[in-house]
Every structure is written in C-alpha cells, then in structure tokens.
Design a binder for these strands. Structure first.
Lengths: 241, 241
DNA sequence: AGGTGTTGACTGACCAGTCAATCTATTTGG
DNA sequence: CCAAATAGATTGACTGGTCAGTCAACACCT
C-alpha cells in the first residue's frame, strides 16, 4: 500500500555530501550506534524551516535545534541551501518512484490517481513539517529553489500527464482537455488542500485526510456537478449512483 | 465583462500607505502630471520581485529599477515589506470585490466560476509579473507574507465556498463534496495553471489563456471522465473543439 | 518661510561560511 | 597487547560582506 512507503525513515537515504562514508555505515552496523548526526541535522532543519521559514532562520538555529555545534552543519552539508535541497530531493525522489510504479501497474485511472493522492496526503499526515517545507520553499518558489529543481518537479507533472493521456487513449477520460492541463489540475487540487492544512484553513486529522483522498479523485474525475460520474472510490466503481 | 476589470491601470488604486495625499491627487488633475513616483516605485518593485524574488533583491534594486533615489522608497513606504504588502492588497482587494459582485448576480454556477477564473487568468495575462509575485511571495508563503495576509486570502476561499454552497443548495452541485473543499479545489486548479505558466511548464499566449478558462470550469464542474457532464461555457462556444 | 519631494552616504546589525584546535575511534607496527 | 600514527568527527570563535533602514542636506513649489 502506498501509505507504507510514505514513512521512509531509519533507512538513511544514503550519501548526498558526496564524500566516502563507509566507516559510518560500518559503525552503524553494531547496535544502537551513533545518533547519526547527519540525519539529526536534517530532521532538525525540517522543524526549523517549517517553523521559521528557510530565509528567516539562521544556520545556528538548525544546529541548536539538532543539539550539535554550528560547524558540524558545514561538515555534512556544503551550504544552508544544500540542506534544503537534500530534504526536497529525498522526498520527491520517493514520490517519483511511486508514481512510476503506479503507472506501470494495470489499474483503472481512478485507482492510479487515488494512489498518488494517497501518497502525497499520507506524506503530509506522516510529516506535515516536511511537506510544508517542500511546498512552501521549493515547489512554489520561483527564483530560488523551485528554479533549481524545476526539472525534478516537472518530472512528476509529466508522469501524471502520461497517466491521464493513457486514460484518454482508452476513452475513459475526455480528449478535449489536454493531458498536460489535466495533470496540473489534479496536482493543483492536492497541493491546495495541503496548503489549506498548512495555513490552518481546513480541519486536519486522519479522518479528514482519508476523506480528502476520495474528494480529490471524485472531484477531478467525476466533477462537482450532479449528473456527472459518481464513481465509487477504490474498488468496483462503475455503477452510476 | 470581467476581463475589463482585470486591467485596472491609470487609476492609481488610491492610498495604501495611509498618509494623506490630497496634494498629489490635485496635481494629477492637471495634464500629464508628475510621473507619480509612488506608482513608479510599485511598478518597478513588481518587476524586480518577479525577476529576483523578494528575499534575493535589495531595496536599492527597486530604487534603481524605478530610477529614483534609494531614500525615496522609504519616503513612500515604511519598509521593504510594505511595498510587497501594498502590491498584494491592491490586487487581491479588486479580486475580492469582483467575486462579491459575481456572487450577487443571478448567474448559473458555471458562469460564476468562469467569471472568477477569467478574472484571475486575465490578471495574469495582463501583468504576469504581478501575479507571479503574489502567488510566489504571498499566497504560498507561510511564515512570512502568507501568514500576514492569511485573513484576506481566506476571504477569497470563503466567498468561492459560498458560491459552491449555493450551487449545492440548488441541487446543481453534488452535496457529498464539502463546499470548503470544492472551493479549494477550484482555486487550486487555477493557481496551479498560473504556476505552470510562471515556471514555463505550460505554453503561454492569449489562445492558451482563453482555453484555460474553459478547461478550469469544465474540469472542476464536469470532471475529466467521459460520460460526465460536458456543459458549454460562457458565450457562444458550444462546439466541441 | 515652510512644506513636501528627493537625494545618497552612512551605520548598525546580522549571518553564512571559514578554520584552527580538540576530541574520538580505528589502524598500524613493534 | 599497547603506543603511536592517522583519519574522521566535532567544536565554536571569528571574519568579511551584505543590506535594511536612517538622516541631514538639498531642490522645488506655493
């Protein structure tokens, strides 16, 4: 289930600094092992970025939050920017992978889209701070990180576009609405819901998150109007009401 | 027509700094009048913010772009922040007004939503830089301007929510999808399209903008699936392609 | 003579990134 | 099995540059 993947912790997503770190890996093989300062810093950064925003926080804040010395941040990361880059890529890569997997499976479109929506919403549910940072500081940040990662971001849109395209080829989705637009619409709805939660404009909670998954798919696929298709959600969904 | 209102120039949307400025208004009554430095600074700021981002630009950049001295920026605005605040409020206020007007008129939901979508897209078409700044620096910026203006932003969502609610009461929109969610979805689709244009992920141009208006309404109201409602749009554009 | 508009040099605070020193663990060679 | 050597981890004071905001002076109008 996609929800499972949403929590990809403890795995220490490998290098990023580029330096050799075989020694650290070996040491970690033991028992409790050293608290892996690199991870500690990343996690602290998420909290600090979410709380104060990337621009408003100082590197010292991250170090303090992580309980390490200032200089250590620069031992593991080349710059303040690189910390954010790492956080973003770590998560976005996992999402791209999931979308590719979903795309490969022989599922009805609704299910594919639902899987994607579920992944993103579960990601938020599992670590709201991280998703807040990604959306606020990267995904929408032209002239800074958004620009840097535009290629990676675009990949996601294109993968979703492919799914829509296929549905159109199969005659399940209307052909008049360009796949590219449809993909943006779908993603836009999800991101706006997260934004609503981030800004505390919408009620949050497991229940709401579950409901949101259905709402997203139902809205985008079936439309808001009565008389439009009202498919069931996950399982069998052909019955017209 | 909503498109007309999207271009609210030459009118100098009045005060914002709060100080008395009757003198300026009187002088402007003449002919060409002084170039209204305040406006000059605001327009320059839009360009600079759009080009470099709010955080990455210096106040000196704004002054240079406007062709005025550094200190003059502080004569008209209390701070760098206030410049952005002014730009945002100026435009957002107009949008709120439009939504209220649209809401008051006895139109079918599709038309109301189309009018709103048209306004926002026309705004972008008319001044992409300004919309870029508003979306990138305010609308999605938790922990900075988004937080400051959250109330004003929320107003828009709620007004749209009211329109959806009404459609539900009339039995035109499905009741299962909470109006609040639906409103967010609608707005989210629009903002994501703008984001696509801002990041150059979607083709731009008058033609695309026009098409987008229909796509937004059609997607959100009728859904992507075949068999869903395929309503016409505003004027005489019933023909499918 | 007084007020508003305009100028740009200056300052005070702030902060990313550097670096030399210290500490800890692992390896080597005797 | 231990001491010296090596390498990485960790520390935090310090620096160099940046920039928002101030201010005193000047320009122009009435």
């Amino acid at each position: 289930m996609s929800a499972a993947r949403a929590s990809g912790d403890g795995t220490t997503p490998s290098s990023q600094t580029g330096s050799g770190e075989a020694g650290a890996a070996a040491r970690r093989g033991g028992a409790k092992a050293a608290p892996d300062k690199r991870r500690l810093i990343l996690d602290a950064a998420v909290r600090v970025f979410a709380r104060q925003g990337f621009h408003a926080c100082r590197v010292a804040d991250i170090a303090d939050e992580a309980g390490v010395a200032y200089g250590l941040v620069y031992h593991y990361f080349g710059s303040k920017d690189e910390v954010l880059d790492t956080l973003f890529l770590e998560r976005w890569q996992v999402m791209l992978e999931l979308i590719r997997e979903v795309d490969a499976e022989p599922l009805p479109v609704r299910e594919k889209l639902r899987a994607i929506a579920s992944f993103i919403i579960d990601s938020y549910s599992h670590d709201p701070d991280l998703m807040k940072v990604i959306i606020v500081e990267v995904t929408r940040a032209a002239n800074s990180f958004g620009d840097t990662h535009i290629g990676t971001i675009r990949d996601a849109y294109e993968l979703i576009g492919k799914i829509v395209q296929q549905a159109q080829d199969e005659g399940v989705f209307k052909a008049e609405i360009e796949a590219r637009f449809a993909a943006m619409a779908f993603y836009g709805v999800i991101e706006q819901l997260l934004t609503g939660w981030i800004f505390d404009l919408l009620p949050q909670g497991e229940e709401e998150f579950e409901r949101a998954k259905s709402v997203v798919v139902e809205t985008v696929c079936g439309g808001l109007e009565v008389g439009a298709v009202s498919g069931g959600t996950t399982a069998g969904n052909r019955l017209p009401r």
